[in-house]
Design a protein around this nucleic acid. Sequence first.
RNA 1: GGCCCCAUCGUCUAGCGGUUAGGACGUGACCCUCUCAAGGCCAAAACACGGGUUCGAUUCCCGUUGGGGCUACCA
Length: 516
Amino acid sequence: MTRSVVRTRFAPSPTGYIHIGSVRTAFFNWLYARKHQGTYVLRIDDTDQQRNVAEALAPILHGFRWLGLNWDEGAEVGGPYGPYYQSQKQPQYQDAVRAIVDKGLAYWDYATEEEMKTERQAAEQAKRQFQYSRRWIAESAADRSRFEAEGRRGVVRLKMPREGKCVFDDHVRGRVEVDWAQEADHVIQRSDGSALYNLANVVDDFDMKITHVMRSAEHLSNTPRQIFMAQALGYPLPEYAHFPVVAEPGSKNKLSKRKIADYLKHPDFRKLYEHGERIAKTLGMATTPDTFNPVIVDFYEQVGYLPEAILNYIVLLGWSLDDKTEFLTVRELTEAFSLDRVNKSPASFDAKKLFAFQERYMSLKPLEEKVELTRPFIKRAGLGDRKLAEVVAAAADRIKVAGDILDYEGFFVSADQVVYDEAAFEKRLRVPPEAPGLLKKFAAVLVSVAPYEAPQIEKALQDFVQVEGIGHAQIIHALRIAVTGKAVGFGLFESLAILGREECLSRIERALARLS
RNA sequence: GGCCCCAUCGUCUAGCGGUUAGGACGUGACCCUCUCAAGGCCAAAACACGGGUUCGAUUCCCGUUGGGGCUACCA
């Protein structure tokens, strides 16, 4: 037995976005390659020619780079076994198709779509498995010209065995056996001469010397026909691992980008979405489901999630280390990951838990890093970042995602731009009759606080409360609204100190002015 | 319809014949507290069902039920 070097791959098709389930599959492939000091290939499955590849590919490559899932060979970086774009390999595929036909393991077929459909429906009505009659098979060049003379267009179909079994071992499913008769004569070459996914896939995996084909369980049923082709072509078989699909919140259906409207009915998913939406709106970003959707990775980048949090959460969808370890860095995962601890059943996407990982990773970030993480959001909102470090420090764990810095927008604007929470303003400033008077008096106290820092301000307020014979609540809430416009926020004394004396005084003045 | 697969708290999971069925997220109570977070502490919460096998089944086998994937000239 020869021990081959591990080569894994992930092969997105250029759709313009990365599905969160794809991240999981790509990450498993990446981890496996890294763990075994192997090679991770990013190949582009663009056999379906209709789309603008370059444009649709950019966001995908960007997303993987953002996540840190770098590839050793493939799109943009090249490598010794290219091309890494299926659209550039049609000649190779056609050679392979010809070889399979020559061996008698595939045939030219001239059935029209309607004829196939009729057969298929007949089978379904008879409650039998569909098996093509091979009635329009062309066994010779003469047959082909005859069919073509009728105006028919030929495709190439696999001539699947109709007895025996296909048996293979899968690292997560175990031994898989399926009757060959179960397999349809799938088309491997379209009538326009272009190759289909299954064929291209087999040729590419061979050309790129992929040793481990690891993909989502949706592809499990593609495996027998791929094995059939590989054998027909005399290729060695790779090892297989089929991961369970990532399912919807609250169900076992495959998570799908298009069903966002349904997911939004799920409270937890909705909360995650709305949190992001608030940030996006503040920035004036478009929030169409194509670009702003928690099923798609971009969403998380746009609102300031941490790649390591996403990766850590996502790896746990179908894999676990043991009965208690959940927080693992990418480095630790690279050590710990193994195929034999991958589950067989689908795992639902849980927005709450993802968010919990995000909170945790964010809270671990040193202050300076958090500042740099939040700075782009302040800039994009068109705000000045002079007080950023102080605000980030004071906000501490309240900043869960980088975009949350925008909750403290009020610290980056001037007094006349403060936006008030009207309900709170009413409750704390208009309703209590003593509020304006107390505010005015306390403003006078603030004038002489020195130095103008949190502990001194707090001391001044304690004294003030004593002298006036009032409760803390009577002044604190009113003051918070007057100065920040909001009912909630981090420590009041820190807030006052960060704003500075002059700013506080003018904000109090403005709030008082609104009362009359 | 056909084929294949899956099944432990609401969710992610540990468990690989004998456990008070463990952890995490979330939820609830309490503590802390100038609000909001964070933190601390406690609690509630699961082996889908029916047959076997076995001294003993969450665990092994069969069936039922439920769920999922595939069934394209998509990938």
